[in-house]
């Protein structure tokens, strides 16, 4: 608990530092959140280069609008909101969606398990991409980025009740697809 509070205070200090003109302080925030943001964007758009551009654009926009950041919210919720908007813009452009060629890192040392997980991951990602954007985004935020319902409500600018109902629908749709294709434990 105390660690979390320290972390929030530290983030606020970095933000304050940036606002007083020390651009280099922003690096601490980039260092901390570039990985989670990049990966969440990757799950949403399924394109390595696009995810990279989205992450970069999100940080630059966050920096430009740092003065509007409300410290009653966590910095990561705020920057996720920006990243989601950037991702939606990209998805709306309806550009190419190439398959993810980069290997997904797994911690499992057993090659068979690792291969199975990779296959499973690819199949789930494929089905995720077949969902409507609303459903995909909310599943990524909840289960991949591990945001709470309250945080998702803030990120998507919707009431918590709507978050719940969208999550329910999204899970049902994804489960239906996985069951239909006999993927993973849904076979």
């Amino acid at each position: 608990m105390a660690d979390k509070e320290d972390q929030l205070l530290n983030e606020q200090a970095l933000v304050d530092d940036c606002l007083s003109g020390h651009t280099a302080s922003f690096e601490g925030l980039v260092e901390k959140y570039q990985g989670p943001l990049f990966n969440a964007a990757l799950r949403m758009v399924h394109d390595y280069d696009e995810a990279r551009d989205i992450t970069q654009a999100a940080f630059v926009r966050a920096y430009e609008r740092l003065a509007t950041y409300d410290s009653q919210y966590k910095f990561f919720s705020w920057i996720y909101r920006i990243m989601v908007n950037e991702s939606l813009n990209v998805l709306q452009r309806n550009r190419r969606t190439t398959s993810l060629e980069t290997d997904i890192a797994t911690n499992d040392s057993n090659p068979e398990v690792s291969y199975y997980q990779k296959e499973l991951g690819e199949q789930i990602q494929t089905e995720l991409m077949n969902l409507a954007v609303d459903s995909r985004v909310i599943l990524v935020l909840r289960h991949f980025a591990d945001l709470s319902l309250h945080e998702i409500g803030y990120v998507l600018e919707i009431p918590e009740k709507t978050v719940k109902s969208r999550l329910f629908t999204a899970r049902e749709r994804l489960r239906g697809r996985l069951v239909h294709r006999g993927i993973g434990r849904h076979s």
Partner: peptide
């Protein structure tokens, strides 16, 4: 299971 599978999708290092 669905929740665990989504959590277990794995992360890759950003460029």
């Amino acid at each position: 299971a669905l929740s665990e599978e989504l959590q277990g999708l794995g992360s890759i290092e950003p460029p």
